[in-house]
């Protein structure tokens, strides 16, 4: 196999890797906020249940969650397994990452001092206004480094999708490696991941800079 065919084949897989990456972020970032708010709910039952769910999602391997989301419905209810593997893969990734994002958001929100809420109340802000206009902008600034951390991890975690036969870049790389008995595909994969991560770093750096409006 020529290097060109190898790279082309893996680039084809890279488009699927990108699909997992972007779709996971699109769904998990808002979902995480929702989960964080549930987690901080004053209602003991809601916050307790959410806490339990988060601990299950963070305490079991992503690989297992991928299997559960893909094949669980079939074994439990006889639901046909989706032919488009992207759907269960993105659902599993989005749920898993939402759990991590939720804890990051919670840390950010709880780091804002109580005095600010009291000041806002005195100034006549409603609760929603206080959260959206005063608290959230500060939270986003504070949590950006942790979010970047998770996003970079996600770049590499996409390779986990091989568990359910989703043909993303690393899976194809492994197939080429085994058919050609060569380690070159792993090198190509490494370069792909590194470049991908460099682009993500660049984009996140831009966003952080934009948010740095006070300095």
């Amino acid at each position: 196999m020529s290097l060109w065919v190898m790279v082309a084949k893996m680039a084809e897989g890279l488009t699927r890797t990108c699909a997992i990456f972007f779709l996971t972020l699109i769904f998990s970032l808002p979902l995480g906020m929702f989960v964080a708010l549930l987690r901080m709910s004053r209602n003991k039952i809601i916050s307790g249940v959410t806490r339990f769910i988060i601990s299950v999602l963070r305490g079991t391997p992503l690989m297992l969650q991928l299997l559960a989301v893909t094949y669980g419905p079939y074994y439990l209810f006889g639901v046909t397994v989706s032919r488009n593997k992207l759907i269960p893969v993105v659902i599993a990734f989005a749920i898993n990452y939402a759990a991590y994002f939720a804890e990051i958001y919670r840390g950010g929100i709880e780091s804002i001092s109580k005095g600010q809420y009291e000041a806002a109340e005195v100034l006549g802000y409603t609760k929603a206004q206080t959260f959206l206009r005063i608290i959230l902008p500060q939270v986003i600034k504070r949590i950006m480094p942790s979010v970047t951390n998770e996003v970079v991890t996600l770049v590499k975690d996409t390779s986990m999708a091989f568990t359910v036969s989703y043909q993303e870049m690393f899976t194809i790389g492994k197939q080429i490696a085994n058919s050609q008995t060569s380690f070159v595909p792993f090198l190509v994969a490494g370069v792909f991941y590194f470049v991908f991560k460099a682009i993500v770093d660049f984009a996140m750096g831009k966003i952080e800079k934009k948010l740095n409006y006070y300095n």
Partner: peptide
């Protein structure tokens, strides 16, 4: 990605392979 695979039709035979098992099944040149 949606378009790549259709619902299992009556006439379709889907062969399950381990793509990392030469010479029985592997990614060709």
């Amino acid at each position: 990605a949606c378009g790549a695979k259709n619902e299992a039709g009556s006439n379709k035979f889907i062969m399950g392979i381990d793509p990392e098992y030469p010479p029985f099944s592997y990614l060709g040149d």
